[in-house]
Amino acid sequence: MKNNAIVTLEGVTKRFPAGKGLFTALRDINLIFGKGEFAGIVGPSGSGKTTLLNIIGSLDTPTEGAATVLGKRISDLSQKQAALLRNEGIGFIFQTYNLLPVYSVYENVEFALLLQKINTAERKQKVMEALEWVGLADRAHARPSTLSGGECQRVAIARAMVKKPALVLADEPSANLDSANSHHIVQTMKKLNRELGTTFLFSTHDEKVMQYLDRIIYLKDGAVDREEYPQDS
């Protein structure tokens, strides 16, 4: 697995100041995620799922231990290097979609490519391709405010996938969606995982999502409680 590893976590611990003391959000996490995995970090609220995704996404750094993502040790990265890593190698999908309301669907998806300074023609081709993947090519010029929750999340998936990152981090992607939409967006991601070989890491406690995962890591009080491989059973 290690040769194929996209994410390596070694003794990752994260503490936050809380009052006069420190609150330990993650304790001694040791995990490896390989290329093409479709894995989920599961646990109740406050178990440290989002903190772990933030560290993997280079939005935060561990207090102790080492997190290596796409060959880069997160603690050693400068702000600019972390931004470059996110821009080129990591896609984010948020619970609340985080679409930019003043931009159209097309512009929201195009945004990630603008940062990579890709020329207009190539950008257009890539954006339309990403919108095709999620079935929203016909809504390219719509504003996010005119879309349903499921459609918004599909735009967010297209935005995360348009640059074909090696890793996509999805933080509670189905939390704001109804059952049908939840199934639909996870199926979309699963399809992209199979077709493009992209590694997907979820934080979730939604059983509808969990049934599609190849690997489930249960977190409890900031530590790995157990791991399951549902597809093997």
Binding site: L59, K80, R86, N87, F92, L115
Partner: peptide, 9 residues
Amino acid sequence: TYIALGMTR
């Protein structure tokens, strides 16, 4: 979101 998408601060 801008920062998550890869924009520098």
